[in-house]
Amino acid sequence: MELLRGICKLICQNKARSALLLGALLIFVTFCFMYVGGNINPFYSGMSIKPQSAQINQNETTKIIKKVGFIPFYTKKDMVYESKNPGIATVSDDGIVTGISNGVAVINLTVRGITAQTQVYVTENAVVHYDKGVYIGGVKNGKRNGYGVMKYENGNVYKGSWKDDTPNGYGVMTWKNKNRYEGEWKDEQFDGFGRLEYKNSYTYTGGWLKGGFHGYGEIKWKNKDEYKGEWKNGQMNGYGVFSWYSGDRYFGQWLDGNRSGYGEFIFSRDRSRYVGYWAQNLREGYGVEYISGKLRYEGEWTKNMYEGIGRLYIDGTTIDYEGEFKNNKPVFK
Rank of each mutant, 00 (worst) to 15 (best):
residue 189 Q to A: 10
residue 160 G to R: 03
residue 155 G to I: 03
residue 136 I to L: 05
residue 213 F to H: 11
residue 163 K to C: 15
residue 208 W to F: 08
residue 157 V to T: 02
residue 242 F to T: 10
residue 157 V to A: 04
residue 137 G to R: 04
residue 154 N to R: 00
residue 152 Y to L: 12
residue 225 D to M: 06
residue 216 Y to T: 10
residue 198 Y to W: 13
residue 188 E to L: 15
residue 180 R to E: 09
residue 135 Y to N: 00
residue 190 F to V: 07
residue 168 N to T: 04
residue 150 M to E: 06
residue 162 W to S: 01
residue 240 G to T: 04
residue 143 K to C: 10
residue 202 Y to W: 07
residue 155 G to M: 02
residue 149 V to C: 07
residue 191 D to W: 04
residue 158 Y to W: 01
residue 176 K to C: 14
residue 197 E to T: 10
residue 160 G to V: 01
residue 140 K to H: 12
residue 242 F to W: 12
residue 210 K to A: 12
residue 140 K to C: 11
residue 164 D to N: 08
residue 163 K to H: 15
residue 215 G to I: 00
residue 215 G to P: 04
residue 177 N to R: 01
residue 227 Y to S: 05
residue 193 F to N: 12
residue 196 L to T: 06
residue 206 G to R: 02
residue 231 W to E: 07
residue 189 Q to D: 08
residue 158 Y to S: 00
residue 190 F to N: 07
residue 218 E to Q: 14
residue 164 D to G: 08
residue 134 V to K: 05
residue 222 K to G: 09
residue 236 M to V: 12
residue 199 K to T: 11
residue 219 I to T: 03
residue 217 G to W: 02
residue 178 K to M: 13
residue 240 G to N: 05
residue 138 G to R: 02
residue 195 R to K: 15
residue 146 G to C: 04
residue 184 E to N: 07
